[in-house]
Amino acid sequence: MNSYVLKRGLTYALLSFAAFLSVFPFFWMVVGATNKSTDVVTGKLSPGDNLITNFQNLASQVDLVRIFGNSFFIAIVSTVLTLIVSSLAGYGFEIFRSRVRERVFQLLLLFLSIPFAALMVPLFVLISRAQLNNTFAAVILPTIASIFIIFYFRQATKAFPHELRDAARVDGLKEWQIFLFVYLPTMRSTYAAATIIVFMGAWNNYLWPLIVLQTNENKTITLVISTLTAAYTPDYGVILLATVLATLPTLIIFFVLQRQFVAGMLGAVK
């Protein structure tokens, strides 16, 4: 029993230490959002009273509703479409194996490693020819079939019990019904993780939106933050406030969805 207490204590101590290291920069960011720029630079670590002023400065430079609206629209549409298209493909590659598709998959994994900078110019030509410049479609379309998420779903599907699928087949379910009514509910935690990851990626996407979104009204919050830092004497209080605001949506999504990591799929197996 003593060794149990010791081990527990050690686990808590280590987790608390790691949590402290993880939180500190975030804490600094939040505190900085309430301080004047000069205080941020000199490393003040206590909350200040400049939050309202920072917010007013930010709101006067940026149409926050519009910009956050753009970011939410792009991130939500991207997430939903990516999850649908990429989980279908990941499931398809794992469940229905064939030599040809296996080769296709290996090729995709190789494509995953191509740096985006190498593909950006031709992709831009493509988008311009389709007259999609400066539209959200230009941002969203190229990200929907994410090789990375396809790969993730394929790996996660390896844990999907075959018995479930066989049973469903015996019951006369069609393949799309099996995916929709058996696979999808079973893999809740996988979908939860993928939602967090895809949303975060879409929300923070920088280089590609920078190239295709051209007018100020269409910019995302990630692009706007970058322009805030460009000044010769940047206002760090305002920048940190903007980054805190930009962080919240992903954080909330994580906090809500992480409960799925507990629920699990055991009920479904038995």
Binding site: L88, G92, F93
Partner: peptide, 8 residues
């Protein structure tokens, strides 16, 4: 097999 991966 092809149908599931087709959109992607």
């Amino acid at each position: 097999g092809w149908a599931f991966i087709m959109p992607a």
